[in-house]
Design a binder for these strands. Sequence first.
DNA 1: ACGTACGGGACCACCCGTTATT
DNA 2: AATAACGGGTGGTCCCGTACGT
Lengths: 213, 213, 213, 213
Amino acid sequence: MARTPLKRQRNPKITRARILEVAFMEIYCEGFRGASIDVIAHKAGVTKGAFFHHFATKFEVGYAIIDELLRAGILERWIAPLARYDNPIDGMIAQFKLTFETWPQEYVARGCPLNNLTQEMSGVDPIFKDKSRAVLTLWLTETERYLRQARARGFLRRGVRIRDLARFVVTFQEGTFAMGKALDDRSVFDSSYQSFRSYLRSLMPISTGRPAH
Amino acid sequence: MARTPLKRQRNPKITRARILEVAFMEIYCEGFRGASIDVIAHKAGVTKGAFFHHFATKFEVGYAIIDELLRAGILERWIAPLARYDNPIDGMIAQFKLTFETWPQEYVARGCPLNNLTQEMSGVDPIFKDKSRAVLTLWLTETERYLRQARARGFLRRGVRIRDLARFVVTFQEGTFAMGKALDDRSVFDSSYQSFRSYLRSLMPISTGRPAH
Amino acid sequence: MARTPLKRQRNPKITRARILEVAFMEIYCEGFRGASIDVIAHKAGVTKGAFFHHFATKFEVGYAIIDELLRAGILERWIAPLARYDNPIDGMIAQFKLTFETWPQEYVARGCPLNNLTQEMSGVDPIFKDKSRAVLTLWLTETERYLRQARARGFLRRGVRIRDLARFVVTFQEGTFAMGKALDDRSVFDSSYQSFRSYLRSLMPISTGRPAH
Amino acid sequence: MARTPLKRQRNPKITRARILEVAFMEIYCEGFRGASIDVIAHKAGVTKGAFFHHFATKFEVGYAIIDELLRAGILERWIAPLARYDNPIDGMIAQFKLTFETWPQEYVARGCPLNNLTQEMSGVDPIFKDKSRAVLTLWLTETERYLRQARARGFLRRGVRIRDLARFVVTFQEGTFAMGKALDDRSVFDSSYQSFRSYLRSLMPISTGRPAH
DNA sequence: ACGTACGGGACCACCCGTTATT
DNA sequence: AATAACGGGTGGTCCCGTACGT
């Protein structure tokens, strides 16, 4: 059979997606500045010409990662699942646990992709800041929505301030990722889970008493 | 009177300290990779030769920043003050408040220097990871020590797991810095304070009831 | 009445002309090397594919600019008008004045398009050299023709060397454009006009005395 | 004898001068944009690191070429020699002749270095424009000075406008270089010389009649 | 201890041109 | 005829580090 002359693939959507995926991984592993376009292009099996056809600058890939991948990640991992719970508080506790329990061992020391990008780039480039703020705001807003729902359904005490609590929920997750990364020790995930559950339960009405786990 | 030569004083200690201070600021503002040795040297009023005389590599300054500056920062800002409280829980709540209340406005969007460095570099260089882990461990260990003290003094309920709580205390501070940075909004500092205090108080014995703040 | 589709008209002639016009302007403003095909295509409202459909290479546009636009410019601005004068010397003086008086202010600092292209590219590409030489030769030849006519009609002194004078006429115009561009000061145009007229009149027979202007 | 390990030369003045000289030649031959820093560094026997130690940007070399080399060239080739003539008009005619007679054959098609740089870059970068304007202004000013001297000494007719004449002298030289380059024919140099002499003599007082050459 | 010339490498961006496709 | 994906390659810049010199 004649050697097919390495036919040039011509599928822009797939090419772009592949570049984006590879770029995400490279940036996640090496940091935004540590990632090299040459390497990304090479690993994605395209040339730099193709790379720059799909993304005008390196920053643009970063933006796309936030807008397309990380945002979707939050939606999938946190927001969408909450809809399945009658008691959103239970849902949050469960999702918290699930998130960190299923977090791949090799990524413990890598932390949260969104947090990494934000920490590294939000001070450098205002668009990065805007975009990560947008995703975080989405995360916060949706969390707030579910917390309000929880309160309406009687799963939260009257005095609880929804806004502060939503911020706690997100803040503590980010902090947990950061600690896991810094200590490279996933046992902090469980510690965090214990505290997370403990705090949230302390805000439930007394009547909702339930077994200690 | 002898001619006092105005020529540059050759005081290695001072020179080193100045370089370190400038490097810290540059790295804090631009990130480790974003900071340039040329710029650091220039801002410190020395040449690159002087820089490399005091620090063998760029990484070495990073190490020194963690070992000397950031470690000292934790000690001063958190650990040392706790000794002054009879009730360490009150101390932590107060120090949490103080830390974030006095955090300069222009640094809100810059976050925690230790966290920044760790996030950016711990995945790149093992020594960075070791060193930041060491500082974090110090922070955790000392916090644990005071928590144990608190429990011994009856300021914590029996069932509270000290290790988890210590991790919470540190994790939540890191998370708070990260959120403040990402959202560039210091109002999250107050939200975090409310949650922090709320959670810690929920772990106090009931008898210790105190005014609503 | 048949549906006139508003979709892009596929009129190769017009497309080509538009590309050529835009390319001329870009190259005139940015220089040949400074001009980008992407930008030209974009400004012409076509894609790069269309560009390369009409011009095999970037150089080809350059050639077309000389062959079609610049050559026509010389004919219109200089050669054709001379035919309308009984005394070609008067014609040249008048056309010299007209050329520089009507030269748009915003193009003073841009100089002569032909001269620019020639200066930049004649040393790089032999075809550029040939083509600009051809246009210049046309300019020189036609000027010579009119000068000979002038001498035949008694408007030039016997001893005047036609070839040298023709070269002077062209050379000095190029020099004037270059000076105007370099100094970005159109007052040099008037200075040049004074010298041009002064020199040409000094070559007229004495009898042709005329008012001091 | 042991191999001397290619001792690193450490002579900044010479290094800089060598880079500058090579850069001048490369830019003169290839144009500013056509010249490559890699090639310049290589031909100068230094690395890019050394290049950028001496010149912060490519533009800076261009600036230095104008400020240091081209300016000196005008002074040496034109201004200084005029001082040696009792009759500056004769001096200019003689220097005009000398300039173009001694112009190396292989550089005829390259034109005037100052003119080349100016034509290519003055429209692109304002500093280039300023710097070349400064050199041209020097050239014009000094020429004017000698013309005034000539008039004072009775070598020019009363009515001659010094400013216009100075501009003519410079403009026509630039034009001559441009024509020589474009036609790649040094015979235009002689044509220009004839016209130059002819025009300047036409401005001398009648009494100063001299042989036809 | 410090100054500075210099080495060598890497990175982002761009650019011209080709080719598959409609 | 015209589009857009893609190929390669180069170019300027900057950066960390070395080593020579004082």
